[in-house]
Design a protein around this nucleic acid. Structure first.
Ligand SMILES: [Zn+2]
Ligand SMILES: [Zn+2]
Ligand SMILES: [Zn+2]
Ligand SMILES: [Zn+2]
Lengths: 132, 132
DNA sequence: AAATTTATAGCAACAATGTTGCATTAACGA
DNA sequence: TCGTTAATGCAACATTGTTGCTATAAATTT
């Protein structure tokens, strides 16, 4: 395998993902990056991060990709990404939740990727709603 | 609410969804329909079916929408769609599996939609692989 | 049966998201 | 310092799904 090079763009992107507590869409990332990085470059860096196990990709129920750092407690094997994702329909944020999903699967199925996304109202948004 | 009208296009589409054992993408549907129906019309009919509880929408981890009839045993409330979906990376089919997913959610989260998709190799494709 | 109403269909154009090809730049090792 | 090639940036494209508008036709009323 060809080895990776340390570039400014990648450093910024990885720092961003690690700093954020929620999973980020491409748009989120573009908006939050300190420097302008080309659209395509961002996509390519993200794909590389996923391939290298630095981040994982969530395809949410809005059909868009979100990316989250794999740093904390989420080991790089597939099964570790079986954790839950929650997309809030109010604040439009996607969170990685630590809870694992349990299920049984009929004989003969071999799982390679997990993509579990619930959507609804997140805890902070329901708290806000209660307050009114 | 304005009442629905019985049209040829809708009948064909609903028949197709009910006849099929797997969830269908737009392309699948286009290809399998006995008559040519306009792209946009298909999308609109599908959205109506989902709104009316005749079908449910799955957003798979390829970012595309798949549709399955709600006829058999899948009641029309949200929770009933908590069943598992499996997308086979070999034969590219999406199945509704009857098994429910179990998970716990932190306090304060309110779920409106479930979207659980595993991907990998389905039972028939792994059987074929074994045979070789 | 004819006229009326309006849900549905069809066409064109658009929007959003992500990828590929290719030339240029720059990281890194020799 | 030089050469190799990974990474970037630009343009163009691909795919998937939606919206606006007009035409058609299903259902209801006259
Ligand atoms: Zn929220
Ligand atoms: Zn996650
Ligand atoms: Zn298969
Ligand atoms: Zn299903």
């Amino acid at each position: 395998m060809s080895s990776r090079r340390r570039t400014e763009a990648q450093t910024q992107l990885l720092d961003l993902l690690r700093r954020e507590s929620t999973a980020l869409s491409h748009d989120d990332i573009s908006a939050k990056l300190p420097t302008d990085i080309n659209r395509v470059t961002i996509y390519r860096i993200l794909n590389r991060f996923v391939a290298d196990g630095l981040a994982h990709r969530i395809v949410a129920d809005d059909g868009r990709q979100y990316f989250a750092s794999c740093a904390d407690g989420c080991a790089h094997d597939t099964a570790a990404h079986g954790h839950l994702h929650f997309r809030c329909l109010v604040c439009d944020r996607v969170e990685c939740l630590p809870e694992q999903v349990a299920f049984s699967l009929p004989e003969g199925y071999r799982v390679e990727n997990y993509n579990v996304t619930l959507s609804g109202t997140c805890n902070s948004c329901s708290a806000l709603a209660e307050a009114n």
